[in-house]
Computed example of a mutant assay.
Amino acid sequence: MSFHSELLAQTQQERSTLISVPIIQSALGGRIAREDYVAFLGQAYHHVRHTVPLLMACGARLPARLEWLRTAIGEYIEEEMGHQEWVLDDLAACGADRAEAAASLPSLATELMVSYAYDTIHRGNPVGFFGMVLVLEGTSVALATRAANTLQTSLDLPRNAFSYLLSHGDLDIEHVGFFEGLMDRLDDPADQQAVIHAARRFYVLYGDIFRTLRQDGVRWAEAA
């Protein structure tokens, strides 16, 4: 079995748990309010803006034996530059204040996920960061385009309110193939276990962002 296949098999339960989060299922069925979508975009901004800094940090910490992976990270960085601006564009198209969204604080769940990503890179094995890549890109491919198409109709929003979801649903299909090739080149058992461990954690952490978009029916725009 290739490592990528093993990675998917080892994280199947966590992936299924994430997808079953009620608000995700409601979104796929077009049963959420515009405020929910705006809350999702607000949190997306707060983790997407860290994607490039995290990639840079990961690349800087890789050992010389993984120079080929550092080169691949350079390609990821080129692809990911400026995506947080797409999220702000979508928020503006939904009627939200762009500057206010950019100046807002992340929720506790979002802050913890981002913090864990930096911690994985700086304290643990930096290769573990690719566990986060698996979770975010894999979830986008599985859900983003479908959710965007459903929500555009149910929320009566313009197409340009979904540039982040639509672009990532399509873009990440290409990324998943690229990612699979990278994972199958990882031959060190410690590196492999670092990715599996981190992926399991990131499925929980990313799921918590969705679980806490509402708290007892009240949306969390910020941590209390």
Rank of each mutant, 00 (worst) to 15 (best):
A96L: 09
A99H: 03
S115Q: 10
L66I: 01
V87F: 11
W68L: 02
L69E: 03
G59Q: 00
V114M: 01
V48I: 15
Q84S: 13
E100W: 00
T110P: 10
E67F: 08
L28S: 06
R98N: 00
A93P: 08
A102K: 11
G29D: 10
G30H: 05
L28P: 04
L41N: 13
L54D: 05
P106V: 13
V38L: 15
P53S: 04
M113F: 07
V87A: 10
A33I: 06
G95C: 06
D36T: 15
A39N: 13
I32T: 12
L69P: 01
A93H: 08
G59R: 00
T110E: 10
L62I: 00
D89G: 07
V38K: 14
G95H: 07
Y76V: 00
M113W: 01
Y118P: 01
D90C: 11
Y45I: 07
A101R: 13
R61K: 08
E100P: 01
A72P: 01
E80K: 02
A33K: 15
I32A: 11
H47S: 03
L41Q: 13
H83C: 08
A57G: 06
L108F: 12
A99R: 05
E78K: 12
A99Q: 08
L62M: 04
Y37E: 13
A102Q: 13
Q43L: 09
L28C: 05
R70Y: 02
H83L: 09
L108E: 12
R31T: 03
M113I: 01
R65Y: 01
Y116P: 01
C94F: 10
H47V: 06
G124P: 02
L112M: 15
A60C: 00
Y116K: 12
A64N: 04
Y116R: 14
M56S: 09
R65V: 05
A93Y: 06
A102C: 09
E78N: 08
A109K: 07
L108C: 12
R34T: 15
A101H: 10
R49A: 04
A103R: 12
A39Y: 14
R49M: 13
N125I: 02
G42K: 15
G59N: 03
T120H: 01
